[in-house]
Write a protein that binds this DNA or RNA. Structure first.
Lengths: 226, 226
DNA sequence: AGAAAATTAGACAATGTTGTCTAAATTGTC
DNA sequence: GACAATTTAGACAACATTGTCTAATTTTCT
């Protein structure tokens, strides 16, 4: 009856907390060492549990790996959609607003710890587990890119952009704002805040030169093709 | 001591041929399985030699891995510089010429078997062998990107482009022509010829909208024919 | 407090891998 | 044909890892 003040112990949580700790540790180790190189003893130690507990929770190494990928996909997708909701549909300053959006997306989703880990797993194990990552491909880029394309189509409809194919435009946007981060992405390095901002700034400026509307906002000298 | 004619006195053909076969097989297996997952027996079998021969040639697994990365870096850099030499310095049709260059670069260097393998090794083992890949980074993108930037600066000087920072421009060019290949690159898939052409076409068009000279290029100065 | 569930440490067999060694076989050269 | 270098297959020890099992301990619930 004497309920000690629940300082930091959550009676029903302990079990689940361990599950999360195991998945988190497995994430880190799988990404660092690859599937083959990952060591269950190391995962257990890093999670602060015994090896047997890892097996109790997840059965075997491959099931643990699948759990890691699913968790990572879920987390990243949630973040991307949350950020997508901040897209500037009614921009005041189109350039500044797009740069802000690009930086949010990159900092919170693409360059975050989870983003880095998911990328690494796709890169290292994508070929070996095609069905597992087909799921990611569908729910990830297969869903978020069209959603982004729709936002650009809307901006074009409102006269802020002059675009042809919204899907191509979306991919060009992503390609441009990440243009200076490619090597970091390949090496599995997290770019600095500064790099992210700079790549986004340069990228958005080029993007607007390619896709900005020429008519409404500012008159540019036009070498009229007429 | 028996200094016979140093042409083919040894069994260089067979011997060297085996060395190459081993490195080639190791490439394939390391890329498919990762360093930890790669199996020397499998490499030997794939090279058509006995396991002992692998050890005779390369000492141990790590030395073999280093040999693979060096060979791959060398091959890819050679290809990139060869292709860079075909950059359209005096374009007739700027769009068509840049698309052609982009397709050549991607097909021959980036999406080739070697290009795919090198990318995969950087992605999977880049963090574990920083000094090994620092070498690649310097001789690879660290050299080829400035070289490409110089070409763009020259085009701008000749009035074909309107650019600000040539290095940023070069990265934007690469980002745009690869915009539709990113997922394939992440998954370690070789894009089809058709995909490469399409991504290059869309990319170059956007690139020229962003960086094309607003007025047709005027020949400011005629280079003296050498 | 007492029962039920979860966790732990450790031992354990089974398996696979690396790298070495040896004796036989193959190859190319004189 | 003889000779020297290379290659081969196989055995081998050392080691690491996975996944199971057990008995003791801790945690949680009633």
């Amino acid at each position: 009856m004497s309920q000690t003040i629940a300082a930091d112990s959550f009676p029903p949580r302990s079990h689940e907390a361990k599950r999360v700790a195991i998945v988190d540790a497995a994430m880190s180790v799988f990404c660092r060492e690859g599937f083959a190189g990952a060591n269950i003893d190391l995962i257990a130690a890093e999670a602060g549990v015994s090896r047997q507990t890892v097996y109790n929770h997840h059965g075997d190494k491959e099931k643990l790996f699948v759990a890691v990928v699913r968790e990572l996909t879920e987390r990243c997708n949630a973040g991307i959609f949350a950020t997508l909701a901040t897209f500037p549909d009614q921009p005041k300053d189109l350039e500044a607003d797009l740069i802000g959006y690009a930086v949010r997306m990159n900092r919170n989703c693409i360059c975050s710890r989870d983003g880095k880990f998911l990328r690494k797993l796709i890169q290292t194990e994508g070929e070996r587990y095609p069905e597992l990552f087909a799921e990611w491909r569908e729910n990830g880029p297969g869903t978020t890119l069209p959603a982004l394309a729709a936002r650009f189509a809307r901006l074009a409809f409102a006269g802020h952009l002059a675009i042809d194919d919204p899907d191509v435009t979306a991919r060009h946007f992503v390609g441009l704002i990440n243009a200076e981060l490619q090597i970091d992405f390949m090496m599995g390095i997290q770019p600095s805040q500064e790099e992210v901002l700079q790549s986004a700034t340069h990228g958005v400026r080029a993007f607007l030169r390619a896709y900005g509307a020429r008519q409404p906002a500012s008159r540019q000298r036009e070498a009229a093709p007429a």
